[in-house]
Design a protein around this nucleic acid. Structure first.
Lengths: 257, 257
DNA sequence: CGGCTATTTGAGGTACCTCAACGCCCGTGG
DNA sequence: CCACGGGCGTTGAGGTACCTCAAATAGCCG
């Protein structure tokens, strides 16, 4: 486990390498319109680059944040822990996603966040982001839209966990994963690697690893998914969608238009 | 079922009776600071008063909103429906709560909303709210904070549904209900009526009504809750909290300071 | 090759579900 | 005021989806 982000010293801050934020900008543009000037401002944000290994802690419940991490590459997840030690992953973040807009407006972090894979983060100082949001209402709006879409996904997960059986539940998650990946990487292939262990899938879905394993086998037999060695790949998104009762309305992709 | 809100004609708009919005202001003040001027602006918002019976539809998935309903009295809930007809309630709103800030920023509503009890709503035209949020950043901030806290509650519900057994799950929800009610009504009694049927509780918790019934009996035997006739009352919040593994951090009550 | 971790499989258990019947509360109308 | 009806709550019995525990296998990294 590496040094907590909140205790890192900021240095080398500066927007000289704004090209790295490109994926972040693309992500926002997939959710709302931004003028050319807004885009330039976003790319000019100061940040410090930070690489972390898989499993590294990114946010800790109870802390106060000083920077807003943006996920340039790799995957991360929010999670909460119950008294009996049970873990629930409440949100999965993929490349381009901002990881903690919430701390712009709330004092205390109410959940944990961890790197799922090795990640690189752009750490944007909160004051810089605050000033930009205040100066440019359309950027404040873009922040809000991202917050709202993540919340909408959270509601769909509530439905998924509360009211779908293991098979459609797993298929629904995989389907959402493919949709979101296709949106940010702008490719249309059905075959995407899902870099998530079965234990982590279990914590996303409110199941046990053992049951995820058995359910995965069923989905593979249906041809919707393939496993090679330890790796999981989606294969047939239409089949997944049908198993899953999947409707992408809640991803709000229409909002970009 | 009454006429959908989206087709209602607006008339009698005007802030002459801003005192009705008092509870809404109190709600916001419990979540963030607002200057006297901000408060005056909020109370001066134009709105149309609208009373609806229990079960009335307030928001419909797929629609676009023209007004932002604010809950002056009564209770309402957001819900989603799975393909097999299963219903999951994803959010409970209590007096003072705004019901659809999301539509200020997203075009399409991704869930349904219904009155749990008879409700009275203040229907604020979206343009009025938009202008106010643009003119006064601190009010935009108050809106954001409310959105974020509801999202935080949603994450706690994910943990609740995914990783807690029926008894702590039910106790946790009841505990949260009492806390939130005490906050808006500023009373400290443990005894609060919970105006929610067992079927609705089941849809909040991802259980069946039958199992809610049996679990409720257990919680009553533990003395944490009382039932009189068809009505459910909380009795001992400390006992509930202990059954539930309840920590109120996620309600972000510290944010008002 | 050795050792760690993730996956896989089996067997048995249980928390919760399903179906069905019954009873009680409460609003309604006679 | 009582009779009626409908909805909600209650209880029982049986079923099942998922869990727990445990051990074996397989992939992966040094």
């Amino acid at each position: 486990m590496s040094e907590p982000i909140s205790r890192m010293t900021m240095h080398n801050v500066g927007g000289a390498d704004g090209g790295r934020l490109d994926i972040f900008l693309r992500k926002l543009l997939g959710q709302c319109r931004l003028s050319t000037i807004d885009q330039q401002h976003l790319l000019a944000l100061p940040f410090q680059l930070r690489d972390l290994p898989a499993q590294a802690s990114i946010l800790h419940e109870g802390d106060s944040a000083r920077v807003c991490p943006i996920l340039l590459s790799g995957f991360a997840y929010r999670y909460k822990i119950a008294a009996d030690g049970g873990r629930q992953i409440v949100s999965l973040r993929i490349p381009g996603d901002p990881l903690d807009f919430q701390s712009l407006y709330l004092q205390t972090i109410d959940h944990h966040m961890q790197a799922l894979t090795p990640v690189s983060l752009a750490l944007v100082p909160l004051p810089a982001l605050e000033q930009l949001a205040e100066a440019r209402p359309s950027i404040a709006r873009a922040i809000l839209v991202d917050i709202l879409i993540e919340a909408s996904i959270g509601r769909e997960w509530q439905l998924n966990i509360g009211r779908r059986h293991a098979l459609p539940r797993l298929a629904h998650f995989l389907c959402e994963f493919v949709y979101r990946m296709q949106l940010i990487f702008a490719h249309s292939s059905d075959e995407i690697e899902v870099p998530i262990t079965q234990e982590q899938l279990a914590d996303i879905l409110g199941l046990t690893p053992v049951h995820v394993n058995r359910t995965l086998k069923t989905i593979e037999q249906a041809g919707a998914v393939v496993r090679k060695g330890r790796r999981l790949y989606t294969r047939d998104v239409a089949a997944l969608a049908q198993l899953a009762d999947f409707t992408p309305l809640y991803l709000h992709r229409d909002n970009a238009n």
